Amino acid sequence: MQTRRALLKTSASLTFAAGAIAALPSAVLAKAPIVGRQAAGYYRLKLGDYEVTALSDGTVALPMARIYEGIEEKDAEAYLAGYFQKNPTETSVNAFLVNTGERLVLIDAGTGDLMGPSLGKLVANIEAAGYKASEIDDVILTHIHADHSGGLSRNGKRIFENAVLHVNEREANFWLKADAAAKSDLGIGPQIAQAEAAVGPYIAAGKFETFADDAAPVPGFTSVLRKGHTPGHSAIAIESKGEKIVFWGDIAHGDVLQYDRPEITVEFDVDQKQAAATRAIAFAEAADQKYMVAGAHHAFPGIGHVRRDETNYDWVPLLYSANY
């Protein structure tokens, strides 16, 4: 039975406890600061005997509703909103590292310091994934746009000092052998200058090679010319033990709109009509053959499959796995 003495004793204890809590350092009750950043951006998967590591260069908010061509901005914005994507749209920039057991091969090289502080995180994420830039044997570019080549060099020095750089021959000719008229063009001229600055140090060091259309950039890797976005834009593929993944480059920008509307292009496409035609071919092949696809601008890690649906296609992201 609870007596008056017991009640007083309990009350005294509670008063003492409250006083003790009040006497604790204020830091104990302080609110935690908002961090505002994610964990290191890498994701590994096994492909036969190979290990593939998806690497994030970061994300950037782009006005995709305005960048898309062949659709009114308000319609593109409404479509994206239907998938809970805002305008500007947070857009991933991804690269991929393949360890064959014999070679360490990087596919695309991120933005470097060309596109702002939310990007340019590729080297840090290579290191977080357990590698060093100096360990990479080869770099293969799907194409030479700044968000794929900007991370190759900085202040005239090669970031991947021991790597050979491989680029499709017609892609290299378009950007690195441009005439005076192209260089003075207000639209493409700055892009040519960026290409020269990024690739030039590898050429000077004798670490630059081109590959023909649909040829193997390095042993064990194949390429497929997917022109339109740029003249020599190429998909890069590997296979091991019956498994296949195709590194798509910029076949698609984003995960939704162009899958329902493959004819929609982006203002960055050098040849709009050809880019749309190429996308239709790439989508159909990926859906029919059911191989994995890795996209440079799909939400990180950017790996998944393409399937047909009642309106054209769907992007199906890879199911996350903590082990392999």
Score class of each variant (00 low, 15 high):
Q2L: 13
S13C: 14
L14S: 11
A18T: 10
A22C: 08
S26M: 09
L29P: 06
L29F: 15
R37G: 10
A40S: 04
A40K: 04
Y42I: 04
Y43V: 01
K46Y: 08
G48D: 08
D49R: 11
Y50C: 03
A54T: 06
L55V: 00
G58E: 03
T59Y: 13
T59D: 14
M64K: 03
A65Q: 02
Y68H: 01
G70M: 09
G70Q: 09
E72N: 13
E72G: 09
E73Q: 12
D75L: 06
L80A: 05
G82N: 09
Q85S: 07
N87F: 09
N87L: 07
V93G: 09
A95V: 12
F96L: 06
F96D: 06
N99L: 10
R103Q: 12
V105C: 06
I107D: 10
A109W: 15
T111I: 11
L114A: 13
L114V: 07
P117N: 11
P117F: 07
G120L: 15
K121C: 04
L122T: 03
L122W: 07
N125L: 02
G130E: 08
Y131K: 01
L141M: 13
I144N: 15
D147T: 13
G150A: 05
G151R: 06
L152G: 05
G156C: 00
R158W: 02
F160M: 07
F160E: 10
A163P: 03
V164D: 00
L165G: 03
E169A: 15
A172N: 01
F174R: 04
F174T: 01
A178V: 03
A182N: 04
K183N: 11
K183I: 05
D185I: 11
L186E: 14
I188H: 13
G189A: 09
Q191C: 08
Q191S: 11
Q194I: 11
E196T: 06
A198N: 15
I203C: 09
K207V: 05
F208H: 05
E209Q: 12
E209T: 04
A212H: 14
D213G: 09
D213W: 14
P219E: 12
F221P: 02
F221N: 00
S223V: 06
V224A: 12
R226P: 03
H229W: 11
T230R: 05
P231A: 01
A235K: 07
I236K: 01
A237C: 03
A237P: 04
I238V: 09
I238D: 05
E239H: 03
K241D: 14
G242N: 12
G242K: 12
V246K: 06
W248R: 05
G254I: 02
D255R: 08
Y259C: 01
Y259N: 02
Y259P: 01
R261M: 12
I264A: 03
F268S: 02
V270F: 10
T278P: 06
T278Y: 06
R279C: 00
R279F: 01
A280V: 11
I281N: 03
I281V: 04
A282N: 07
A284V: 01
A294V: 05
A296Q: 13
A299E: 13
I303R: 10
V306P: 12
Y313T: 02
Y313V: 02
D314N: 14
P317T: 00
L319A: 14
Y320H: 11
A322H: 07
